[in-house]
Design a protein around this nucleic acid. Sequence first.
RNA 1: CGGGGUGUAGCUUAGCCUGGUAGAGCGCUACGUUCGGGACGUAGAGGUCGUUGGUUCGAAUCCAAUCACCCCGACCA
Length: 631
Amino acid sequence: MRRGAAWQARGRPGARAGKSTLPERPGGGRPVGFIHHHARRMKLWSQTYIPTLKESPAEAEIASHRLLLRAGLVRKLAGGIYTYLPLGLRVLEKIKQICREEMEAAGAIELLMPHIHPAETWQKGPRWAAVREVMFSAGNASAQAEPAKEPQYVLGPTHEEVITPLVAAEITSYRDLPKNFFQIQTKFRNEIRPRYGLMRAREFVMKDGYSFDTTDEAATESYHRMEAAYRRFFARCGLRFIAVEADTGVMGGSFSHEFMVPAEIGDDDVVYCEESGYAANREKATSGLVPPDLQDAEPVGAVEEFATPGVTTIAQLEGDPWNVPAEAQFKTLLYVGDGKLFAVVLRGNDELEEAKLGSLGFQLYRPATPEEIEPVMGARPGSLGVVKGTIKAPEKLAGIFADHAIRLIGNGVTGANRDGFHLRNVNVARDLQITRFGDFRRVQAGEPCPKSGKPLKIERGIEVGHVFKLGTKYSECFGAVYMDDNKQKHPMIMGCYGIGISRTLQAIIEQSHDEDGIIWPWTVAPWQILVCMLDPELPEAVAVRDRIVAVAEAAGVDVLVDDRAERPGVKFKDADLIGIPLRITVGNRGLKEGVVELKWRSEKEFTKVPLAEVEEAVRAAIARGASSVQA
RNA sequence: CGGGGUGUAGCUUAGCCUGGUAGAGCGCUACGUUCGGGACGUAGAGGUCGUUGGUUCGAAUCCAAUCACCCCGACCA
């Protein structure tokens, strides 16, 4: 090694005279022995720390979580709280760097906001009640501190409440707009259920950005610029992803897209059509099941009550002796929204998509209990219906909302609001009491795409990014207004944009691995090249290694050299596990033959490269690696 | 927060049902033999059996409580 031992860690000399048991802050006296060395792109395995595991810890169930631990990227401190070891940190930094480049290319400006926020900041915001459920509070930890009723400080779960007042104070003129700020920072959310390693953690790294515009059109443009930047970012990370229309949820705002990575372990269902490009979160997805020009069916006869003793389910009514198919039944569900009862009517064979009830304008809603239902409807669940005149106390209902698809039934069967009785010949247009129609049903795979009419597909996905067009919810709340050229004040139009950086890291592993380990895309690999030294001490081997490293460093590529005194088998297994894209094996056997071996992690075969052609071959391989990820 | 499961050495685990003073593999240390796909031998170090309480002459084992972790549901990057 050219580099001597001088720079190696030798423990920090110098006294620790202070009373504090905390480490000194930088500037408080650097250890005398600290020698700065310029960053090199080569790292010796023996000089870093990559604790690979032969067996996977029992806590990890899914592939990416197992590999995070086995390849030595992270270690768990507590549920959903992880330390990044050197390998994990390198990947995280590479992802962050790509993110920075794309954000800046799209005109966003980086800043860094605090982790810790006065609770007051949030109390002034529009969603304190809803968000505090997932917030960590941070007060004084000393035993003397009285437990306060309200937290003094909280750890930031996101930063709308910080950026908006900042912009409100700083920017007052239309001349200073538009602005788009972003940061890459640790977020804290006390997840109800941390899961799958970094996938749903309580502490995680996120890129969050916020745009401020003067007009709605400009805000929409900002939104689309971010959406495009997100596409480039995820593509550069080597991910296959789909951008889908999404529900805006607690965030509020007018429209949004989620960036989803298809994976079995995802939390969301993505509905998509390859033909038309339609893609939506299932919570929001619609289908072309109900043609827009559908004519309502003519009545077939008078409504007729019939006894159905003991029948309380759609399935029972499908059986003998009634034989009413589910798709000819009306399903009547009762919910409580902000304290008021309301009804939702669906086809018997459809399922309610609860998230879609959000469009009704209630803050909070939940299924009603039989005890709440009976006094209003006159029957318990199983015999409910919304036929005019059968509801016991219709004035107590905040509304009766019907899914469009019930119009496909035409004439069907529904509950009589009398336990043990149902009604037949119920005609949608003639008999049902409906406040309004809407889209409330859950889309199923195979239904026609709303755009192309071709069958829709459904896949699980991991949400790695989300872009929202927010509107003025936060700017109005915090007084982020600008003055136009007529001295008129207007609230700024905002957008907000998130990328789960640490989640993206794991999503890449989930999407790119095999039974032997990780297969890093070239762009995010901790090192792009692994020089596997089978005989690390052999002078010829060291000479070849130096030639490889020289080419790589000239090309700006990172190289890890496995210089450990391990058996070849161990080195190969570890190489596969940590997933460096390009492996160059330098060993006694090959050298005698006058070759080194070049192998891609993603392929089975290796090629032999004559020693004279090493530089050329490495350069060609680097070019190939660089073009392997779409940029 | 509801449902299910698991806590034994750094990791993977046996033992628990049917109480009798804790066993293996990997990893670690030393030595020797090995050396191109997780080698072998010899000798070692390492465990208050998650915690607390109970039953018992005696508890890893039975009972109770508690904590932690994992999985399934509702929320999210």
